[in-house]
């Protein structure tokens, strides 16, 4: 696998845009699952009702990887970084735009791994940036 060629071809490429209509119930169910207890996360009638901080990690692009991206092996979720800019509310309509922000390789307990970092930027119906999620996906070529 020529990592440099892979990076040159795919890093920085915007490859997906998807709309998400958010219901208050969707936000509430996620917050309860995470053990949130504050009304602002679990009570849609709270005047400050909003999504729990990592709710955006459940909003997935239509494609995890761009069309034509090579099969690098079995994928695993290696981690998520969520940067929050503004509250996400029930009834918001978000647009998530996806790009590949980095590709790198290393060796772990499971053998050689290629990391693909998928960055997803979310804007609301007022075009305000509300969150950016970096998803690090591990691919294990030996486990294809």
């Amino acid at each position: 696998m020529d990592l440099e060629a892979l990076k040159a071809e795919w890093v920085g490429l915007d490859f997906d845009e998807k709309k998400f209509d958010l219901s208050a119930e969707q936000l509430r169910v996620f917050a309860v699952s995470c053990g949130e207890e504050e009304p602002r996360f679990i009570d849609p009638n709270d005047p400050d009702f909003q999504a729990a901080p990592t709710f955006v990690t459940t909003l997935r692009s239509a494609r995890v990887l761009p069309s034509g991206f090579p099969n690098l092996g079995r994928p695993f979720d290696a981690g998520k970084k969520v940067i929050l800019h503004a509250p996400i509310r029930g009834g918001d309509q978000l647009i998530g735009r996806s790009r590949i922000s980095d590709i790198y390789s290393k060796t772990g307990r499971g053998g050689p791994m290629i990391f693909v970092v998928h960055e997803m930027e979310f804007r609301n119906q007022r075009d305000e940036l509300v969150a950016v999620v970096d998803s690090r996906q591990i691919n294990q070529p030996e486990a294809k």
């Binding site: 995470c34 053990g35 729990a52 990592t54 709710f55 990690t57 459940t58």
Partner: peptide, 10 residues
């Protein structure tokens, strides 16, 4: 993993 992240935020 995303549930683990959510639990930690909680």
């Amino acid at each position: 993993g995303i549930l683990s992240a959510g639990i930690l935020a909680g």
